[in-house]
Design a protein around this nucleic acid. Structure first.
Lengths: 122, 122
DNA sequence: CCTATATTTCGCTATTTAACGAAATATAAG
DNA sequence: CTTATATTTCGTTAAATAGCGAAATATAGG
């Protein structure tokens, strides 16, 4: 039960739901998620570590950057089915639509520049 | 998004998950849920009101008793599909198995007697 | 090696929330 | 009408948690 509750608690926060929905379109770098959510890097990092503990996402390190993606549906069907069901329910929610738009923009932005902009803020 | 988050937050608490799983077997009186969860009546009542706000359960009053049940799957498919998916993931979780056992017992107990026993405690 | 960059960990504060008991409400029974 | 019963609402307290900034860690580049 603990495992399942960890998943449900992880999905009980709006910003974490925004993260997993964003990752449905493919893996993202932490700095892209920071730019999307407009939260402090440490806050986003904490959200990601909770999502990872719940086996909703996994990460890979490439050079200075960490990339996060949803876990494999074959290995973690519960997690992915929940995400998909939530995603379809939120398809036209304004916040989610805005996030999709912003993500497109971000994917066109050079990542070096993006990260630098975020670091300046602090 | 608010509506969906209300559902996910409601499902992010172990005791509330236990309630909705219990209600899968049919409607239950508040005093039965109190006996199941072993929590104060006011606490159970608060959980139920959160579940109702999220449209996961609905209630009906009959005399002195309030009966709660899951909402209709046709009207609230998201809620019911989530409950079903969670239920299947928790099918063999020890706590859930114990709850099922206890519920059988409770369904055989006279409800007047059950309620009285609970009231004595406070 | 030294500096800049990207992310994570840690310590703290503010907010949320689960839990309880007491009081309020509603209904049934005498 | 009064009392007992079942549930809900309210006020309070304790615990959990989201958020931030500072410090720590890790990697890339000069």
């Amino acid at each position: 039960m603990r495992d399942v509750m960890d998943i449900l608690k992880a999905l009980g926060d709006e910003n974490r739901v925004r993260i997993v929905l964003a990752l449905q379109h493919g893996e993202l770098c932490v700095c892209q998620l920071i730019a999307l959510l407009q939260l402090a890097p440490s806050t986003v990092s904490r959200h990601l570590s909770l999502l990872r503990a719940a086996r909703l996402v996994e990460s890979r390190k490439e050079g200075r950057w960490s990339y996060y993606r949803l876990v494999d549906a074959e290995k973690y069907p519960l997690q992915i089915e929940l995400v998909q069901r939530i995603s379809s329910a939120l398809e036209s929610a304004s916040r989610v639509v805005m996030d999709r738009k912003k993500l497109e923009e971000l994917s066109r932005t050079d990542m070096e520049a993006l990260c630098r902009k975020i670091m300046k803020k602090s």
